[in-house]
C-alpha cells in the first residue's frame, strides 16, 4: 500500500490547488441533480396515499437530515485524523464542515417541524429522534464556539477536535433512535436492510436529491477549505507565489 497520496493531501499548497480544480466538478452536477430532483419530487412523484401532497416535504427534509449527519461524520473523521497524525489541513477540513453541517441541521429541524404539524398535529415533541437531532445542532454550535474561544489556532484545533470526536456517539443514536425507542417519527424507509419501503416513482427523486446534496457539500467544503488554508498559512511563501501566478 502506498501512502504518497495521503502525504500529498497533507500539503497545504497541494490541497489548495486541488480544491480549486475540483470544485466545479462537484458544483455543476450538484446543481443539476438538485434542480432535477426537486422538480421530480414536486411534480413527477405521485401523491402519497395517506399524506397526499403533504408528503413532498420528504424531498427537502430527508436530504437535509442526511447532510446534518454525513457532514458531522466527515467533521469527526477529519478531526480525528488531525489529532492523531497532527495534520493541519485535516483540522482545516473539520473547521470548514461545522457551519455547513449546522445550517443543514437547522433545515432538517425546521422542515421536520413543518411536516410534523399537519401529520402529527404538533410542530415539536421531545421525541428521541427530534431531541437527538437538536443535540446535534448544539454539538455543531459548541464546536464553532469553542474554536472561536481560542486565539491560538493549534489549541482551538485540538480542543474542538476532541468535542467533535466525543460528539460522534450522537450519530448512531440519531440514526437508531426510531428503532430503539418508541418514537412518533417514522422508521427508516430508505437506509435500511433489505428493500426500501417506497415505490420507485417516489424513491428515485429522493435518491437523486441525496446524491445532489452530497456533491453540493463537497463543492462548498472545497471552497471553505481553501479559505481556511489561506488563513492558516498566512506566513507561508507559497501563498504569495500562488497569488502572483
Amino acid at each position: 500500500m502506498r501512502w504518497t497520496w495521503f502525504h500529498r493531501l497533507a500539503s497545504p499548497p497541494y490541497l489548495y490547488a486541488l480544491a480549486a480544480r475540483l470544485t466545479p466538478w462537484f458544483a455543476w452536477p450538484a446543481a443539476l441533480l438538485i434542480l432535477g430532483g426537486l422538480y421530480a419530487g414536486l411534480v413527477l412523484a405521485p401523491p402519497d396515499y395517506q399524506q397526499g401532497e403533504g408528503f413532498r416535504i420528504i424531498y427537502v427534509h430527508v436530504p437535509s437530515a442526511w447532510m446534518s449527519l454525513m457532514v458531522y461524520v466527515t467533521m469527526g473523521v477529519a478531526a480525528a485524523v488531525g489529532l492523531i497524525w497532527r495534520m493541519k489541513v485535516a483540522h482545516a477540513v473539520a473547521a470548514s464542515c461545522a457551519p455547513i453541517g449546522a445550517s443543514f441541521t437547522v433545515a432538517a429541524l425546521v422542515t421536520g417541524s413543518l411536516w410534523g404539524k399537519p401529520m402529527w398535529g404538533t410542530y415539536w415533541v421531545w421525541d428521541p429522534r427530534l431531541t437527538s437531532e437538536l443535540i446535534l445542532l448544539f454539538l455543531y454550535l459548541g464546536f464553532m464556539g469553542l474554536r472561536a474561544g481560542f486565539d491560538d489556532t493549534q489549541r482551538a484545533d485540538r480542543s474542538a477536535a476532541l468535542l467533535a470526536i466525543v460528539g460522534m456517539v450522537n450519530v448512531p443514536i440519531i440514526h437508531y433512535s426510531v428503532i430503539w425507542w418508541n418514537s412518533l417519527h417514522q422508521g427508516p424507509s430508505v437506509m435500511r436492510l433489505g428493500k426500501p419501503t417506497m415505490p420507485p416513482a417516489m424513491l428515485v427523486p429522493l435518491l437523486v436529491l441525496l446524491l445532489g446534496f452530497t456533491l453540493f457539500f463537497a463543492a462548498v467544503l472545497l471552497v471553505r477549505v481553501r479559505a481556511e488554508i489561506l488563513q492558516r498559512e498566512r506566513a507561508a511563501r507559497w501563498i504569495g507565489e500562488t497569488l502572483r501566478a
Binding site: 401532497e53 403533504g54 413532498r56 427537502v60 437535509s64 433545515a107 422542515t111 413543518l114 399537519p118
Partner: peptide, 19 residues
Amino acid sequence: MGGYAAFVWPAYLVTLAVL
C-alpha cells in the same frame, strides 16, 4: 399542494435558503 401549501412551500423555501 392538496391543502398542505402552508407547510410544503415554507419547507422548500427554508431548504433553498440554506443551499
